[in-house]
Design a protein around this nucleic acid. Structure first.
Lengths: 133, 133
DNA sequence: TATACTGTACTATAACCCTAGTACAGGTGC
DNA sequence: GCACCTGTACTAGGGTTATAGTACAGTATA
């Protein structure tokens, strides 16, 4: 699968799972109606506790991203793609705004900030461009 | 003062305080040798617990950013400016890398991402440019 | 029917984060 | 000396996160 957990991240593990599934649906790595990994399977894969995965899945159901098929598993809900795309944009925008605000507030030189942005934007360019859309 | 706490932020409060002081020193809003707000004063101002501020200050001492003057208070340590500038760059770089990686991994269109970056970069341009350096 | 898989729901424990309150040694200024 | 400020160090309790383990109803498959 295409999920990774960053244990040194300040974000809670279950939040990372939620976020990555939202992003995966937004990027059509997961399609509407498609089944997602089971609670136990994903937990094993990420070496985290099944309860933590279950918590993420429950929240994603509340958000309308996932839907339960009794006794079988969870699928990507109908209409989730559009919603996730919207949410992905908001999340990225929010992060960018936060970094820029922080930088400006501490009077980091605009040009220096600009240069940082350019460097990081083009770093890793050409990665994650392989798998067929 | 120039500190603000975002209670909805995933970052722990004491971490936010640490971060903001590092950034303030980097941006010369706090100069070496200058006294910083007392534990109780900052706690009152931010409406958080003095223990939380004390914890942040203790960590900043361990990091060599602050130095204790017994019975009087805490000052910005000698040599802190350079160290904080370095750290600010790393922190910003890290955040940018994270956002870009996330966006690319979910196959957000490069141009769309680029546009988001431009929008947010120039939003708020002209703010935080007032107080005299 | 039996087996093996789903999600879901519990209890319990440990580690943090934050708050609240109290206490004390040390410095400053009247 | 006295009042008032400083940092620092405790105890205690509540909330969240993550872990471990157990249990059960529902579904698919052989």
């Amino acid at each position: 699968m295409f999920f990774r957990i960053d244990f040194s991240n300040e974000l809670a593990i279950y939040e990372q799972v939620v976020r990555q599934i939202v992003f995966a649906v937004a990027g059509r790595l997961l399609r509407e109606g498609e089944m997602i990994p089971s609670v136990r399977e994903l937990a094993r894969e990420l070496t985290i506790n099944p309860n933590t995965v279950a918590r993420a899945y429950r929240q994603l159901q509340d958000d309308g991203v996932l839907a339960s098929v009794r006794g079988t598993g969870l699928i990507v809900a109908e209409g989730a793609a559009t919603r996730c795309r919207q949410r992905r944009l908001e999340l990225i925008r929010q992060r960018l705004a936060q970094v820029f605000e922080e930088a400006r507030h501490s009077r980091l030189d605009a040009q220096e900030l600009r240069q940082l942005v350019e460097e990081e934007f083009f770093r890793g360019e050409g990665q994650d461009r392989s798998a067929g859309e």
